[in-house]
Nucleic acid binder design. Structure first.
Length: 304
DNA sequence: CCGGACTCCTGGTTGC
DNA sequence: TGCAACCAGGAGTCCG
């Protein structure tokens, strides 16, 4: 499942190809992939056709490409093409005549001043992902920074230079919930999905359902550091793709599922203690953990 | 504020 | 071999 590292790999791969490119043609093959677009598909096509694309940005798992409208309002980057990969989305760069993947939902024909014509294919098996054209609005905390309106409620991610550790730790301490639920809450901290949540918790020796109330400041700090390590490592290796759903912008598969310690390792020995990793159903998904290294600690009594 | 249930969705896998 | 049931889960919504 694409999480922050995979989305960042897509952003970085897309950047040189689309920055400065002009959208010549847009084809929507499946309107369900526009579920986050406010208007009809004609509106999506109209807003993109003729537009010039600017360097892409990302927050958490959301990716967007600011657009300069064809009508030439100088510096009018008031809208962006927003991309969310969902469970199985891919953005593939292709030559104009390359065969289409069967699951292609949206095609952009673009022309780059240096690289020439190029095709940007949005491929998505499960259609949990989407594309949309959305308004760019200023962020509350960083001057001159703009973000799509539909991403405004998403918290900064731990790799964001403006991520505020102290603020995050304070917000976490105010939560009354389980730690994995908090890690997956994109309004608290973004970019973390099921895989890296399990990995960071394993590295921190914390049980997924550990109450945040029972998590010391020191332990929470360790967890945040492990989240960064896990994400950074995945980033360095080019993203995880054990199920081959995720493919980077050039079509080459991501990999390095071999370096996962807990996720998908049910029955395998814990790399730390050798006991079998367990998979449990939690929040409608699998949670993988070592029952010895990661044990639930009782919540601090609220009062009596 | 919190959590659970539900929705979107389809290809690959499993089970009979 | 064939087909149906099951499984994967990010994010949003609704309800108690």
């Amino acid at each position: 499942m694409p999480e922050l590292p995979e989305v960042e790999v897509v952003r970085a791969g897309l950047a040189p190809a689309v920055s400065g490119a002009v959208v010549e043609r847009v084809e929507v093959l499946d309107e369900r992939s526009l579920k986050r677009h406010a208007g009809p598909s004609e509106d999506f096509v109209d807003r993109l056709t003729g537009a010039t694309l600017a360097p892409p940005s990302r927050r958490g798992k959301f990716l967007w490409v600011p657009i300069e409208s064809a009508s030439g309002e100088a510096s009018a980057r008031t809208e962006a093409l927003v991309v969310h990969l969902g469970m199985s989305g891919q953005v593939l760069l292709r030559t104009p005549d390359a065969p289409r993947d069967r699951l292609t939902r949206i095609v952009l024909d673009v022309r780059h001043p240096e690289h020439g014509p190029l095709r940007v294919d949005f491929v998505d098996q499960r259609i949990f992902g989407s594309m949309a054209v959305d308004a760019l609005l200023p962020t509350a905390d960083v001057p001159a920074e703009r973000i799509p309106s539909q991403v405004a409620h998403i918290a900064r991610d731990p790799m964001d230079p403006h991520f505020d550790d102290r603020r995050f730790l304070a917000a976490l301490a105010r939560k009354d919930t389980g730690i994995k639920r908090a890690l997956l809450d994109q309004t608290l901290v973004s970019g973390i999905g099921n895989i890296y949540a399990d990995e960071a918790l394993w590295a921190s020796r914390i049980h997924y359902d550990q109450p945040t109330r029972a998590l010391s400041r020191a332990k929470a700090t360790t967890l945040l550091a492990e989240v960064r390590l896990v994400l950074g490592k995945a980033l360095a290796e080019g993203g995880t793709s054990f199920d081959a759903q995720y493919v980077n912008v050039n079509g080459a598969s991501g990999y390095f599922s071999h370096s996962l310690n807990a996720y998908g390792q049910a029955g395998e020995p814990c790399p730390r203690c050798g006991r079998a990793i367990v998979r449990e159903q939690f929040m409608n998904r699998g949670s993988h953990f070592c029952p010895f290294c990661q044990r639930v600690r009782a919540a601090r009594p609220v009062r009596s």
